[in-house]
């Protein structure tokens, strides 16, 4: 485990060192961005709609009992942008995109494509890892913005149509506007960018260190997703503490 962490940090360092080459790899960055958006946007929206809805459904009746329904917009809004949207989108992307990155790089490793690149003096970090890491770091915060907006909408629909809550759209969004600052959204985006780097690094690292045949690729994919999710949740705690401290 500690060896893996060391290797992942080395990969981060080498990718950061290759960052000035991003413009040269822009076509691959766009391809990756398209793939991430195409594969995840619809699912992200659907997931967020229901997360917002469930959040309203769980908290709304309790608030209504105490005559506090005017706070439901704030609760759904803050939970979505500070915590749920970044964490849930990161887990979704770890499952959908992280797994695909690990599988693709794993297959390239097993079938000697990485060796072929190195034999042509083409740096696999620049050619393969850099575009993926840049693309996922750009795409995840954008997905989180969508997720926050759709999550708020999901919360609004449930708050309006659930008979135990029965608040107006206007009341819900007024409450949301009163309770949310731009800094709350920025906090969520900051977290999501950090999660994106973790997913990209862990998935690329697992892919590049794949050994064995198809079974090895499967093992790398599983480890990439599991390790990404574990690291996201651990990092989430520390980032939350840091951001609360900064607030």
């Amino acid at each position: 485990m500690f060896q893996n962490v060391g290797e992942i940090l080395m990969l981060l360092w080498r990718t950061a060192w290759a960052l000035p080459m991003t413009w040269r790899q822009r076509r691959k960055v766009f391809d990756q961005l398209f793939e991430i958006g195409n594969a995840s946007l619809l699912m992200a929206c659907l997931l967020s709609l229901f997360i917002g809805g469930v959040l309203a459904l769980q908290t709304g009746p309790v608030l209504a009992e105490r005559g506090l329904t005017s706070f439901i917009g704030q609760i759904v809004g803050l939970s979505m942008c500070r915590e749920l949207a970044p964490a849930m989108m990161a887990m979704l992307i770890a499952g959908r995109i992280g797994s695909s990155m690990a599988a693709e790089l794993g297959s390239m490793t097993v079938y000697q494509e990485i060796d072929a690149l190195r034999s042509m003096n083409i740096n696999p970090i620049q050619y393969l890892v850099l575009p993926r890491l840049v693309a996922i770091s750009l795409a995840l915060p954008v997905l989180v913005v969508f997720s926050i907006l759709i999550g708020w909408l999901g919360g609004a629909v449930v708050s309006v149509y659930n008979y135990q809550i029965a608040i107006s759209y206007e009341g819900y969004f007024n409450s949301l506007r009163d309770g949310i600052d731009l800094i709350d959204v920025v906090n969520g985006l900051f977290k999501s960018a950090a999660f994106a780097v973790v997913i990209g690094l862990v998935s690329c690292h697992q892919g590049l260190h794949t050994i064995g045949g198809p079974r090895g690729i499967g093992r790398s994919v599983t480890k990439a997703v599991a390790n990404s999710i574990i690291l996201i949740l651990i990092l989430d705690y520390f980032l939350t503490r840091l951001l609360m401290h900064l607030d």
Binding site: M108, A116, S119
Partner: peptide, 24 residues
């Protein structure tokens, strides 16, 4: 300038033949 012809070919599956050959 060093080059290697791999036993399996080791072509990049996501690239066309032309892109593979012209990659270097």
């Amino acid at each position: 300038r060093l080059a290697m012809v791999f036993q399996s070919g080791a072509l990049l599956n996501s690239l066309s033949v032309a892109d593979n050959v012209g990659l270097y």
